[in-house]
Write a protein that binds this DNA or RNA. Structure first.
Lengths: 175, 175
DNA sequence: GATATTTGATATGGTCCATAACAATTATCA
DNA sequence: TGATAATTGTTATGGACCATATCAAATATC
């Protein structure tokens, strides 16, 4: 599979509707499009490419809020599950605890969420959203809904969009 | 989003069908399942999780051949487009040329493909599969088809599988 | 109360992705 | 033609993300 974020720069060739274009182009060394072949039917390949495109678009939509997909998911989960500690939030997102520390440091330094020492278990840090964090998350949700997810409807239609999400969830859970 | 490869280790709790289980569990500190909430409807989140699962499965299926998704895609593309150079193969896979070097070093050291100095343009390295590379790719294709892609049919059915691939391709190309 | 476990944290290494720079070669074009 | 620009493969390097081992503090277990 192997798909990086660097999109091929659409080589910007002048439109050319003449026939026999291929041979002429080949003769003068112009770029010949490669055959993807079976690659375009490979689940992993097309899945990875789609994922990169979606993340790319997500980052553009959230540029004003400076939220990555990872950070957005943390804020969403903390909002939905107040009073949980770092281990719980991190593990349900598939983030390893050591790697979650720097991520929280970032969010906390931006005053989006806060760590609170639990009184029950003084080892734990309870996570909560700050007022600013709640406000930012609200704005983020709106941006995602109107600029990001809406694009899927434009592209696939409502019914297909739901079917797609359902199939991906099924793969994520049962594959 | 943020989903790592580390699956939550299915904490292996004994089955417990009693009612009022939640409160009891909470009282004694047993793990409470978190609410994913809107996260499970987020395109990027479910896409990333599905992609990780699929890659994970791919690696298991190809364990005997020691081929990563990236390496498999390179072999496929070289087979389908003989006589192309590194830049062409790398760019259509979205791999940056500097990062492609080590990848080719690996495949070449395992005698799966070879670099040949082009006679037309002595800067270029033409890429070809070795006999061993062709044999390995043939076996790899069979493994992917029977062990990997077949799983999708079992999970979604033929029609849904095709619809899924089509939608993902559309996202990859037009999103 | 001795031992084991959990929590947040640090250190560290691996992989992948991205940019700059370089020598060799080829293309451009004045 | 010859000077300059562009291309190809490559190296070096830094960043982001992922994974493991380890630690001190706090708690659980027996």
């Amino acid at each position: 599979m192997t798909v990086s974020k660097t999109a091929e720069k659409s080589s910007e060739k002048p439109a050319d509707t003449a026939k026999g274009r291929k041979d002429a182009a080949e003769a003068q060394g112009a770029a010949e499009a490669l055959q993807l072949g079976e690659l375009s039917e490979q689940l992993g390949y097309v899945l990875k490419r789609a994922q990169l495109k979606v993340f790319e678009n997500f980052l553009r939509c959230m540029a004003s809020l400076q939220l990555t997909p990872a950070q957005f998911s943390v804020l969403l989960l903390v909002e939905k599950n107040p009073g949980r500690n770092q281990t719980e939030i991190a593990s349900t997102l598939g983030i390893l605890r050591p790697n979650f520390v720097a991520m929280l440091d970032n969010l906390e330094s931006r005053d989006l969420c806060a760590r609170i020492r639990s009184t029950n278990d003084r080892r734990s840090h309870i996570l909560v959203l700050t007022d600013k964090g709640k406000a930012v998350l609200t704005r983020a949700k709106k941006l995602v809904a109107t600029k990001h997810e809406a694009r899927l409807n434009d592209l696939l239609g409502q019914a297909n969009r739901e079917a797609l999400i359902g199939m991906l969830a099924k793969i994520a859970n049962e594959f």
